[in-house]
Simulated scan of single mutants.
Amino acid sequence: MNVLFWHLHGSWATAFVQGKHRYLVPVNTGRDEWGRGRARTYPWPDSVEEVEVGALTDDDVDVIVLQRPAELDLVAHLRRAPRVYVEHNTPRGYAPETRHPMADRDDLTLVHVTHFNDLFWDAGATRTQVIEHGVVPPAVRWTGELERLAVVTNEPARRNRVVGADLYPRFTPVAPLDVYGMGVAGLSMDGVTTHDDPPQAAMHAEIARRRAYLHLCRWTSLGLSLIEAMQIGMPVVALATTEAVAAVPPNAGVLATRVDTLVEAARWLIDEPEAGRILGEAARRSALIRYGLDRFLADWDRLLEDTSCASR
């Protein structure tokens, strides 16, 4: 099956292209957000091909996987290929009553990556389905020999309270923070070291040496970096918000909405690496089962095949 989709979210796309299909990824000369092409910092298989969207015909595409409303106009000339729309994010504004851009449509299926997102978005009469994340298992395992804390997030200076960057100074008296991700270089805080857009494998190797993983997002969809950290075997210290309360079982870390509780948990894990090992082993077991790649790809295969068959 020929599946057209944009390279938008690196970790999600990396898991998605591990399937059995031929994946067509738009590219343009600037390699910007509308034509990023193949990944450069993630390992992708040869089944991913770069294409010019405007040159595609109906004979080239079996299913279109959309991720942004503007993509609808870019594939308007592909009239026969059925559409699936993936929603990666939580709603903005007054969340319980926020209408989804794809609400009340009968020409596509809206796929949420978490049950939390499905609960909060108002999709009207549009068909919805939840396909939870899947992760390519990281090649490294947690060692935790460095008395430091790891955070993975994008653009923390701009997103600030959304991703909990304003809370970092509460944790730096406990241990230095290493913040990894795209656009982290703009963050400047005492006790915080930034690592801007590292290759995925190198980032995994580095965070695995840190004592614990901090997930301080107030309002966001479930970060794949949290799942990756759990699969590495890292103990988790996280705000008990959004989907994190379902993703992190009680024996895999410490979750709370009281920040002082999380600061004390971080201090405990810095001082007691054996406790971190026990929590991390539970985190790894849970994440491998719930967010395994085989389950993720099987769920997507069923949806893509059902969508393609229904359009014939």
Rank of each mutant, 00 (worst) to 15 (best):
S225T: 02
S188G: 09
P176A: 14
D271V: 02
S286D: 03
L224R: 05
G253V: 09
D196C: 10
E264M: 08
A201W: 13
L177Y: 05
G280A: 10
A212L: 02
R210H: 14
A185M: 07
L279T: 03
T241S: 15
L255V: 04
R267T: 00
A266D: 07
E281Q: 12
V245T: 15
A229V: 06
A240R: 07
E281L: 13
G280N: 08
G191V: 08
R284Y: 05
V192P: 04
R285M: 07
E206M: 12
A244W: 01
A246P: 03
L187N: 06
A266G: 08
D190G: 15
A212D: 08
R211N: 04
L177C: 12
G186T: 12
A244N: 06
V263S: 06
T193A: 14
R277W: 12
D178W: 15
G280V: 09
R211A: 13
A212P: 07
A282G: 04
A252I: 06
A185Y: 04
L222A: 08
S225I: 03
R209V: 03
V254C: 12
I232N: 01
T220F: 00
P249W: 07
M234D: 05
A266Y: 09
T257D: 12
T220C: 01
D196K: 11
M234S: 10
D196N: 15
V192W: 06
V263L: 08
Q200C: 09
M230D: 05
E264S: 11
D190V: 12
I207R: 04
Y213H: 05
T242V: 11
S225N: 00
G186I: 13
P199V: 04
A185I: 03
R277F: 06
L187R: 03
Y213L: 00
V184T: 15
V248R: 05
